[in-house]
Every structure is written in structure tokens, then in C-alpha cells.
Simulated assay, not measured.
Amino acid sequence: MNKPQRASAGDALTDLILTMFRVNNLTLAWGDRLVAPLGLTSARWQILGAVVAAERPQPVAWLARDLGANRQNVQRIVNDLTKEELVAFEPNPHHRRAQLVTLTDKGRQTYDAAIRLYTPRVEALAEGLAVKDIEAARSVMTMLRQKLEGDENTHV
């Protein structure tokens, strides 16, 4: 009797990656709708969040690295946020050209308003999901991220 053939780890990972692509697109669209009343997009909100999460002001390149994003894209968004007075540049004592990005009072108020919109919505999304399953998914995503960050082939 033939045993059913099991999918390889590569096949399972491919299915996960395809699902991640779909979930990423849906999450960005969901975030865009959520923060649109504040004049934000998911990308702008994400940058504000990175500035808030940083222990101290950072240059754009460091924000991009922390987000796993392209530096030029982050620079463009930071420039837009600067024009809207949500962030500001300040001199970097360690590097003359790489200015530090700081949150303005208006930026803090906008970010806090986004979090007030987000919190009840994310709680609603979490309904019916077990915390241990969410933590397991995060663990797999973290391991995958670490492998990709260390894989020289991802920079081809």
C-alpha cells in the first residue's frame, strides 16, 4: 500500500509565502482605510511608528534597516512627513549629512490618534484567534526574516 506523499518543507513554505503576500496586501489596504481620516497611509503610519519605537532619533538609513525597507522609499516618505510637519530633521552629531528624524508634537498627536483607531479594530481582528497560535505564527515569521536577512542570495 502506498503512503500518501507529504509536502516538503519547501512546498509548505511556498504556501506560507503566498499567503503572506496576500495577507500583506490586505493588511496594507486595511491600514490605509483605517488611518485615511488622519491624512495617513499605512506606509506613513509605519514610518511614524518606527520613529516612535526608536529609543532615540535615528537617521533615515537606520529607520529603513529596522523596517526592512528600501532607504530611498523611506527617505521619500520622511520628506513628505516633514512637509506635513509630522516629523522634523535635526543635526546628527556623528554624521553631518545623515540628519536625525524626530517626531513633532503634531506627529505624536497624529500617531496617538492612529493608535486609538487601531486598538479596537485589532482586538476585533484577534477575536477567535488563540494567543498561542499568534505567537507561533510570529515565531515562524521571525525565523524566516532572520534567514532572509542573512541570505546573500536575497540581494541578487
Rank of each mutant, 00 (worst) to 15 (best):
N2F: 11
N2H: 11
P4G: 04
P4W: 08
P4C: 07
A9K: 10
D11W: 02
L13F: 08
L16F: 12
I17A: 14
I17T: 13
I17H: 02
L18I: 02
T19D: 07
N25V: 09
N25W: 11
L28E: 13
L28V: 14
A29N: 08
A29F: 11
W30C: 07
G31I: 01
D32E: 09
V35M: 09
P37S: 07
Q46Y: 02
L48R: 10
L48T: 06
G49K: 01
A50G: 13
V51F: 04
V52L: 06
A53G: 06
A53C: 03
R56A: 15
P59I: 01
A64R: 05
A64M: 11
R65Q: 14
L67Q: 04
G68S: 07
A69H: 13
N70F: 08
Q72Y: 13
N73S: 12
V78F: 04
V78P: 05
N79F: 03
T82S: 07
T82A: 11
K83V: 12
L86C: 08
V87W: 02
V87C: 05
F89L: 12
E90D: 08
P91I: 04
P91E: 10
P93C: 03
H94G: 14
H95V: 04
R96Y: 03
R97I: 12
Q99F: 05
T102Q: 08
D105N: 12
Q109L: 10
T110N: 14
Y111C: 02
D112G: 09
D112I: 11
R116M: 03
L117D: 02
T119G: 03
P120Q: 04
P120R: 09
R121C: 11
V122W: 05
A124M: 06
L125M: 15
L125A: 15
A126S: 07
G128W: 00
G128P: 06
L129R: 01
L129N: 00
K132L: 00
A136W: 00
M141Q: 12
Q146N: 10
L148G: 07
E152C: 03
T154F: 04
H155G: 12
V156K: 11
V156L: 11
